[in-house]
Design a protein around this nucleic acid. Structure first.
Lengths: 106, 106
DNA sequence: TTGACATGATACCTTATGGTATCTTATTTA
DNA sequence: TAAATAAGATACCATAAGGTATCATGTCAA
């Protein structure tokens, strides 16, 4: 765990922000485009994007008067790594395997 | 993603709670034992434990007048699964980058 | 049984957080 | 150049969240 995962965990704790991440996984978007998908003001969406950016989960690239918001999948790493620490505490390895398999096909 | 990961993400968003999880990964603990490791009141720690329990990340078992708090590693699954959705985007972009780089030098 | 001990429950305080409204700045484009 | 467009920046509001203080309840032990 090299970096503190706090900003990323913080960013992921809000449902709206997680939804934005899923949206951005489909395609890059401007702030206005992201805002169109939510029933809240552009300013509110902008705040969420700032939190996501602070968490390293997205990157923002200026393009003329627009800002292209882009998913940064690597930003998940601190969170993934932190979670991974607990993998070996699974007491029932069969259950682990079973859950993993079912998860894939459900 | 069968269960909504919200309560788990919420539980993980606080540093104190993540520290508690690490502690409980070492050994089960009563509320008083957990409290001894922090510079805050037992009531505050109790609240964190409630959030962790709501998030499914720990289980609480009454034992006489004590409550044994125990790590529930399976509780990480909703979070792990949600994060895993983004794995392939990471791979894709890496592949894209790799292709781009190779293109440069071929 | 009585006191000590572990926890539950509640009221309350302060700050963070998610949200709106509004105004300004920087680019396009007609 | 002027108007429309995209976003930045603040100020402000209500509620959630983290924390303390305090009192009630259940359980153990002398």
């Amino acid at each position: 765990m090299t970096t503190t995962p706090q900003p990323a965990f913080r960013a992921l704790s809000d449902p709206t922000r997680r939804e934005i991440l899923v949206m951005l996984s489909q395609q890059d978007m401007t702030i206005a485009e992201v805002s169109d998908h939510f029933d809240m003001t552009r300013a509110a969406v902008k705040k969420h994007l700032t939190v996501l950016s602070d968490g390293g989960l997205i990157t923002v690239e200026p393009r003329g008067r627009e800002r292209i918001n882009r998913l940064n999948p690597q930003g998940m790493s601190p969170v993934r790594d932190w979670i991974a620490y607990f993998d070996h505490f699974w007491d029932d390895r069969l259950a682990t395997l079973k859950t993993a398999i079912e998860g894939k096909f459900e």
